[in-house]
Computed example of a mutant assay.
Amino acid sequence: MSKVAGRKKRIIITTAAMVAIGGGAAFAYWSAVGVGTGAATAGQTVAFKVLSSPATGDALSPGGPIQTVAFTVKNENTGSQNLASVTAKVAKADGTDWVSGTCSAADFTVTSPSIATGQLAAGATASGTVTIQMVNKAANQDDCQGVTVPLYFEAK
């Protein structure tokens, strides 16, 4: 009987040890799901500022001299902006058609601006030029004499 009692003791001790070890390795957790919202405010694009210098060259006349106008584009934003293109045309300061008597934008040709495009850091500028010439039409262009021809620039 002592063999049986010894065996029972070993079984009881082994079982107790396994329960103790197994109990120490047990994990319990709660599962949970959380939701929420957040927001960040992105700045708004600030338009580029375009400033032009007075035209250089001889006075415009039908089919005559070409004048050159230098201009700068400034990034007025607080961050970098991409200057993709600049266009120029004869127009009023708001971009609408310009007319003085019978003289109009159709009496002039403006070349595509010459300027390096790409990223402009905050406050940085890019310089360029554009040329303007009066077209020689087969019609009277007397109303174009002595006028100041406005140029409208658009930087994107």
Score class of each variant (00 low, 15 high):
135 V>Y: 00
120 L>N: 04
128 G>Y: 06
62 P>K: 14
101 G>W: 08
139 A>Y: 04
4 V>A: 14
24 G>C: 09
44 Q>K: 08
140 N>M: 05
114 S>A: 15
140 N>A: 10
71 F>K: 01
120 L>G: 06
79 G>I: 03
69 V>S: 07
128 G>C: 09
81 Q>I: 03
132 I>E: 02
6 G>A: 14
129 T>E: 07
33 V>C: 09
132 I>H: 03
143 D>L: 12
58 D>T: 11
144 C>L: 04
83 L>K: 10
15 T>F: 09
43 G>Q: 06
69 V>L: 07
35 V>M: 06
33 V>Y: 10
48 F>Q: 03
107 D>W: 07
59 A>D: 07
151 L>V: 02
140 N>S: 13
52 S>W: 00
78 T>S: 15
55 A>K: 05
83 L>Q: 11
143 D>G: 14
51 L>K: 07
58 D>N: 14
119 Q>T: 15
50 V>L: 01
85 S>T: 14
112 S>Q: 13
151 L>T: 00
153 F>L: 02
95 G>H: 10
65 P>K: 00
120 L>R: 03
155 A>I: 01
127 S>R: 09
71 F>T: 09
1 M>D: 13
28 A>Y: 15
156 K>T: 14
46 V>I: 15
122 A>L: 01
142 D>E: 11
43 G>W: 01
133 Q>M: 11
75 N>C: 06
29 Y>A: 15
8 K>Q: 00
31 S>E: 06
147 V>H: 12
123 G>V: 14
101 G>R: 11
91 A>F: 06
57 G>T: 03
110 V>E: 04
78 T>Q: 12
99 V>D: 12
77 N>G: 13
40 A>R: 04
154 E>F: 07
75 N>L: 03
131 T>Y: 07
102 T>F: 14
73 V>Y: 00
154 E>S: 14
134 M>K: 08
36 G>N: 04
103 C>Q: 09
145 Q>S: 10
18 M>D: 02
87 T>Y: 02
126 A>V: 06
94 D>M: 10
32 A>K: 03
85 S>Q: 13
124 A>T: 09
128 G>W: 05
83 L>M: 10
44 Q>S: 10
110 V>A: 07
126 A>C: 07
85 S>K: 13
2 S>N: 12
67 Q>M: 10
41 T>P: 01
32 A>D: 04
93 A>G: 15
36 G>A: 11
31 S>T: 12
48 F>V: 02
154 E>R: 13
59 A>C: 04
5 A>R: 11
31 S>C: 02
6 G>W: 10
78 T>N: 13
93 A>K: 05
48 F>M: 08
53 S>L: 12
102 T>C: 11
141 Q>H: 02
120 L>Y: 03
2 S>A: 13
153 F>C: 02
58 D>W: 00
15 T>L: 13
79 G>T: 10
121 A>I: 12
41 T>G: 01
73 V>S: 03
92 K>I: 05
143 D>I: 11
6 G>I: 12
26 A>F: 08
57 G>N: 03
31 S>F: 03
22 G>Y: 09
142 D>S: 15
65 P>S: 05
27 F>N: 04
33 V>R: 13
16 A>S: 13
73 V>R: 00
24 G>D: 04
24 G>H: 05
21 I>Q: 10
129 T>P: 14
2 S>V: 07
15 T>C: 11
155 A>E: 01
18 M>L: 15
155 A>Y: 00
128 G>N: 09
152 Y>G: 04
58 D>I: 02
106 A>S: 09
45 T>L: 13
133 Q>S: 15
